[in-house]
Design a protein around this nucleic acid. Sequence first.
RNA 1: GACCCCGUCGUCCAGCGGUUAGGACACGGGCCUUUCAAGCCCGCGACACGGGUUCGACCCCCGUCGGGGUCGCCA
Length: 448
Amino acid sequence: MADNIPKPPRVRFAPSPTGSLHVGGARTALFCWLYARNRGGKFILRIEDTDRKRSQEELSSEIINEMRWLGLDWDEGPLFQSDRFEIYRQRALQLLDDGRAYRSEPDEDGATAVIMPVDHGDITFTDLVYGPITVSGSELKDIVLLKSDGSPAYNFACVVDDHEMGMTHVIRGEDHIPNTPKQILLYRALGWKPPKFAHLPLILGEDKTPLSKRHGATSLRAFRQDGFLPQALRNYLALLGWSPGGDREIMDTAELIKRFSLKKVSRKAAVLDYQKLLWMNGQYIKKSSAGELVNALQPLLAGTEWEEVPRERIETIVTLLGHRLKSLKEFAAQTGYFFDRDISYEPEAVEKYWSGEGIIELLRETRKEIALLDSFTEDDLEKSLRGLIDRLGIKAGVLIHPLRVAVTGRMDSPGIFGILLLLGKELVLERIDKALEYLHLNPPPESK
RNA sequence: GACCCCGUCGUCCAGCGGUUAGGACACGGGCCUUUCAAGCCCGCGACACGGGUUCGACCCCCGUCGGGGUCGCCA
């Protein structure tokens, strides 16, 4: 029978533009998208902007942009419910004509809402994630179809659209479970076959309460601006409430699509672990080429001093930073010393690596050694400085750490020789001079 | 309060009748190393509780406790 032949599903994501797209919504969108892609179906984007007071156009476009950024491409839409009020009205009128709905008492202005009465029988549906759920109709209040201002109420618009747009699966947050019996009643009244329903567990903050503004930056925009890669976010979010079974974790999007199944979706709310997301982002940063990273980085650099820096130079620095970035946002924070200007010294670094009287002499010798170089390559630098280290009979770190502080001002940095190279001879010598100057003004305390 | 849902390491997930209960993040220790990372190795750490069912329960049933969701002419 036709019902048993699996048809390609049609799945929609239906955000409401009353707020930014947050990670919870993004996770729902991702699961809808993964399901559609896994089954060779269609993914539809629908904007639920029936509440004119609370909906904002800017938020619609922000949501659409963030969906694009996350890489969740849709096959149809974006469709706006605000364009479809006439359709809802017609359907409501039809139910009125059929005697399946009634008009409310008029309000002060004489306006009436259209409402559908609910009878008391049980309503059962089989959720693809939660299994069978039964609710007694006696628990339900009558369902508003059209509000007295003529706009459709959520459940009604949702049902009309899901049917008219041919949705086979409704995948949404667990908070919609209580809406489902009401919607099923609407399908019945309209003589339509309901789609399959699948509800997704909630995403919680560290304090185990549902993710909200209180938890800080939870909008997708914030994650983008914090330097997360969309593919890392997709991977991490996919694992929040779903797993392919076994120990697979790092999965590219193709694998996610291939393995995704609603059967493996968890019923338990999940706490978003920012640390693990950061770690995963680092994994993806490591897998990316410098070119890809610069592409992702550039929007974050707009409006900063880096905007003027040639792409090739940024790419070189990104390469040098290599594996030590967990988010793109760290880039600018860790590389200020590449600009030709005075640097400040981290107090800790000064205290730890510029103590003891020998330090001044050591930096002088180092300067002399570098000044002598006429070929300024990473190899030459290493050879010459290691030569000095040998002659002085010291450990490499004894020279390298103070030098690092002199040229970067920091406790930590990528490999020193690469940094010297990128800084260039002139700036390196200048920085060492500045360091010596500083040390004359602020003599290191007697050490041990 | 009513209705519905959930309950494995701190966190995310495996395991679903017989396992030394597995992996990842975090945490602690070690190795490597010019620092910080990365990487590698080791460690810490959980089946909410109580009854059943069963030769045998994390896995099945019931209850308790705990947590969450919803009860709008918001979506």
